[in-house]
Computed example of a mutant assay.
Amino acid sequence: MTELAKVTVFYDGQCPLCVREMRHLQTLDHAERLHLVDIKQPQFNQQFPDIDAKQADRILTGINTDGRTIYGLDVTYAAWHAVGRGYWIAPLRWPGVRWFSDRVYLLFARHRARISRWVMGRSDCDSCRL
């Protein structure tokens, strides 16, 4: 039996909201289809030289099951789909909705520290590792 391809998600391990979502995804990942990588880990650039950590800090970056680099809500959809819950995110990828949801995501990504402070009471965390 061949191993299923994993979806790799490069996330900000110092963002409380990002870590919270990755933890939730981990609890749903019974088939171990996700590979979650903290872009703030010390050896990130050596381990993933093809991924620009600064860009991945601006917009969620991932690698889908085909090995193609994907960004933003496409990563979110791929991750949730990998754990069997893609239907939660699917409407955000529908034509007509996609353009709007991508812009809202970019706004969220740009202001995620402020949003984290508002939602979780802190904008960053050094001990939020998975």
Rank of each mutant, 00 (worst) to 15 (best):
Met1His: 10
Glu3Lys: 11
Leu4Gln: 11
Leu4Gly: 04
Thr8Phe: 00
Val9Glu: 01
Val9Phe: 01
Tyr11Ile: 00
Gln14Lys: 11
Cys15Pro: 10
Pro16Ser: 05
Cys18Val: 12
Arg20Trp: 14
Arg20Asp: 14
Arg20Leu: 15
Arg20Gly: 15
Arg23Leu: 14
Arg23Lys: 15
His24Ile: 11
Leu25Glu: 03
Leu28Lys: 15
Leu28Gly: 09
Asp29Tyr: 07
His30Phe: 07
Arg33Ser: 14
Leu34Asp: 05
Val37Gln: 00
Ile39Glu: 02
Lys40Ser: 04
Pro42Asn: 07
Phe44Thr: 07
Asn45Lys: 14
Asn45His: 11
Asn45Asp: 15
Gln46Tyr: 04
Gln46Gly: 04
Gln47Ile: 00
Phe48Tyr: 15
Pro49Asn: 02
Pro49Trp: 02
Asp50Trp: 05
Asp50His: 12
Ile51Tyr: 01
Gln55Arg: 15
Ala56Gln: 09
Arg58Gly: 13
Thr61Leu: 03
Thr61Tyr: 04
Gly62Gln: 06
Gly62Arg: 08
Ile63Asn: 01
Ile63Gln: 09
Asn64Met: 06
Asn64Asp: 15
Tyr71Val: 05
Gly72Ala: 06
Gly72Gln: 03
Leu73Trp: 05
Asp74His: 10
Val75Gly: 09
Ala78Thr: 05
His81Ala: 14
Ala82Pro: 05
Gly84Leu: 03
Gly84Asn: 08
Tyr87Ile: 13
Trp88Lys: 11
Ile89Phe: 10
Leu92Ile: 04
Arg93Val: 06
Arg93Pro: 00
Trp94Gln: 13
Pro95Phe: 12
Trp99Cys: 01
Arg103Gly: 14
Arg103Pro: 01
Arg103Trp: 14
Val104Arg: 01
Tyr105Pro: 01
Leu106Pro: 00
Phe108Glu: 08
Phe108His: 07
Ala109Met: 08
Ala109Gly: 09
Ala109Asn: 12
Arg110Glu: 08
Arg110Lys: 15
His111Trp: 12
His111Glu: 08
Ala113Tyr: 10
Ala113Met: 03
Ser116Gln: 10
Ser116Val: 03
Arg117Asn: 08
Trp118Thr: 13
Trp118Cys: 12
Met120Leu: 14
Gly121Lys: 02
Arg122Asp: 06
Asp124Gly: 03
Cys125Gln: 10
Asp126Lys: 14
Asp126Glu: 15
Ser127Leu: 13
Cys128His: 08
Cys128Glu: 09
Arg129Lys: 12
Leu130Gly: 10
Leu130Asp: 12
Leu130Ser: 06
